[in-house]
Design a protein around this nucleic acid. Structure first.
Lengths: 153, 153
DNA sequence: GGAATATTGGGAAAATTTCCTATATTAGAT
DNA sequence: ATCTAATATAGGAAATTTTCCCAATATTCC
């Protein structure tokens, strides 16, 4: 299930992160190998779950999703039932791109992408009507300085 | 440069987001079309920038990046020079996966992925030594409830 | 309604993936 | 150090896929 990654594996991951549409021959040439090792290693890393979904990154603005909020949530409820319902709600809402349970003062942080402030308010109203929340602070992004899926290798 | 997206475009984008390794024939079959329209539309949306990078999502834990922090930053400096340097610093640091300039009380939010708390501290020390920052709060993620690159269509 | 324009479906060449086989390399045991 | 076993590699061939062309169909605009 797990794999020990060597230098070549990491180079392959780097190339795939950078551009997953490259041919095996191209990747092999760049890292100084041939297509078979590249292919075998990719297959193994997929099996092991190191490599997950192959996807395409879309331009949110072009799709009309021009507003991005970070939402800080405090709750008074900490029972299992409440949490389960809360998680289900978040997972069902496609505008929630990220959700983390935090250590400390603030219990959860969300990243939410919507068309505009009005759409955020609609989301917010729906959220607080579904689950009881003690305190919410929304941080509005004015500028996306950086946004990458590339993990450091 | 810009494209008006119709229903078929959105279906194609949905399929590509879901699994960018699908063949054109497969996508065409799913959305009830044939490979040529799918191919032409993808090409146009790439040219228009609606479709960006094709990538592979890696398992951060498998790569040893087990700690995720959200960093809230307040600064007293708002001159162009300071900001330029700050942005450059963030873009050069691969552990910074997201950075947004915010409206309101808090000036910036970062998402930072590192090996562990010690590595975060190293990053933090490097950051504050490079640029003057008034106040920093780090929120430690205990659990990634949701993390998706799939934009709602 | 008819001409102009754009889009579609199918096909063929080029490129790529997938997998096989033979060779080379590494690791372990004596 | 040397042999053996296990593993990884390079190259090649079949199957699949991409890329692009063309004729046919559908759509738009007078």
């Amino acid at each position: 299930m797990s794999v020990r990654l060597d230098e070549m594996d990491r180079k392959i991951l780097g190339e795939l992160q950078e551009d997953a549409s490259q041919s095996l021959d191209e990747i092999a040439r760049k890292i100084g190998s041939s297509k078979t090792p590249v292919w075998n290693r990719i297959r193994k890393m997929k099996e092991a779950g190191v490599i997950g979904r192959q996807t395409v990154l879309l331009d949110a603005d072009a799709l009309g999703l021009e507003a991005c909020f970070f939402v800080l949530i405090r709750t008074s409820e900490h029972e299992a039932d409440w949490q389960k319902k809360f998680l289900r709600t978040l997972r069902n809402r496609p505008e929630v791109l990220e959700a983390h349970r935090l250590a400390g003062d603030i219990d959860y942080i969300l990243k939410v992408r919507v068309q505009n402030a009005r759409a955020y308010d609609t989301f917010y109203q729906a959220l607080i009507s579904e689950v009881k929340i003690y305190n919410v602070t929304a941080l509005l992004s004015m500028e996306e300085i950086k946004s990458t899926t590339l993990l450091p290798l």
